[in-house]
Nucleic acid binder design. Structure first.
Lengths: 220, 220
DNA sequence: ATTATCTTTTGATGTGTATCAAAGTTCTTT
DNA sequence: AAAGAACTTTGATACACATCAAAAGATAAT
């Protein structure tokens, strides 16, 4: 978890973890409408969060991996506002929010950490709004891949290859595209020699080309 | 501000307001890249927040009115991540975030309040993602108008008429549409007798029709 | 192993919104 | 009051992505 804590504070931090919980692939960690009690720190596995409109349209709002925190959507109304689904077998630390609040009153570093996590989520969603509001299909996919790679790389994994945990349809939902469009964009990148794709496996052959697609003006 | 405080606590809350600041129409409250120091509670006036991509594309991420808090995007990196522009002459309470954190360690109700405000923003952005990812132009505009009306109504204003503070282009940027499309959607609603539009003035003639456009399936 | 289901790819066609353009309206400046 | 700038509306056309369709490939179930 966070840095900037001394040994004594680290011990106290253990208090916030009530228990661990395993979630199998396809299962829900929480559902929209569920009473909010806890935040969840992902230890292993991969999740998607999504909201559903009353007429059944689904929007994936994010993909979360080990080390990330989910559940903050529930704080405002004491009910979760989205669904969290495990895209692979996962284990999370259950952190009752009341405990988090209690302890963060005593540990300013924890308090600050909680604020940063929520702020980071706000900033992330701002950039998704930019993506959905202003970018074309290929730019969206390039941004998506670069973001995933960067997060995986921060976890010690390769920055040149990855295995997608989600379907084309889920990627499309996140990016505001149909699955066929996502598939075509993958094929286009592949034809251009930018990536190598074999189903969910993706290898980045030309990272600079991807960055150029994502952010055209930087390269004149 | 918030409810759930006793008289003594209310007094302490005054401490978080360092001073007030006036922002004239068109002026910036803060800019992307500015050092983050404070949250701002809007006393009067109307703001937009927007992010800009490196190649100059602008995405309006929100419109904020009296009683709402802005600036939370800056917490994560100690720098603001978006611009906040006054769309009409405004006055804000400057609340240094360090003070907010200090005091919320002593006042659990304030702590909870801060958490709720940030969570509310996360949830709002989730629904904007749904809007941008899944809805057609007219649905987006209907959702936008209904949201504005609801917030104005909560402030004691009419729920059947409003004066827009932003241009068609700014509405379009928020909704992921071009200004012409926004204009056409307004005209369409007007032709159908759902609203009356005279430039920035909008009167809702058939609120149910608007809700039906926003959320078709509820009405069979 | 075999069948059924789910996922992905690719092609043909359709459509909603963008783009381009121009005129009208309102607001601001002098 | 006049001129200029900014904003809005409306029409004509273009295009990016959606939709429809079908086949191929992977995964799960029996």
């Amino acid at each position: 978890m966070p840095v900037g804590f001394n040994v004594d504070e680290m011990k106290r931090l253990d208090e916030v973890v009530e228990k661990r919980r395993r979630v199998k692939q396809g299962e829900l960690l929480f559902n929209s409408g569920d009473t909010f009690t806890s935040l969840y720190a992902i230890r292993t596995g991969f999740f998607k969060t999504c909201v559903t409109s009353e007429d059944g349209r689904e929007q994936v709002t994010g993909f979360q991996m080990a080390g990330e925190i989910i559940g903050m959507d529930g704080i405002v109304s004491d009910r979760h506002n989205c669904n969290a689904v495990a895209l692979e077998d996962a284990e999370v630390c259950v952190m009752p929010f009341a405990t988090v609040e209690d302890l963060s009153r005593e540990l300013p570093a924890l308090q600050r950490h909680v604020h940063k996590i929520m702020s980071r989520e706000i900033v992330r969603e701002n950039s998704v709004m930019m993506l959905l509001g202003n970018m074309r299909a290929e730019e969206r996919l390039a941004a998506f891949l670069l973001n995933l790679l960067q997060r995986l790389h921060a976890r010690g994994l390769s920055q040149s290859e990855l295995v997608l945990r989600m379907t084309r349809e889920e990627i499309g939902s996140y990016l505001g595209l149909k699955l066929e469009t996502v598939s075509r964009a993958f094929s286009k990148f592949s034809e251009e020699g930018i990536i190598e794709v074999k189903q969910r496996y993706v290898k980045i052959l030309a990272p600079e080309a991807l960055k150029k697609i994502f952010n055209p003006q930087t390269y004149f």
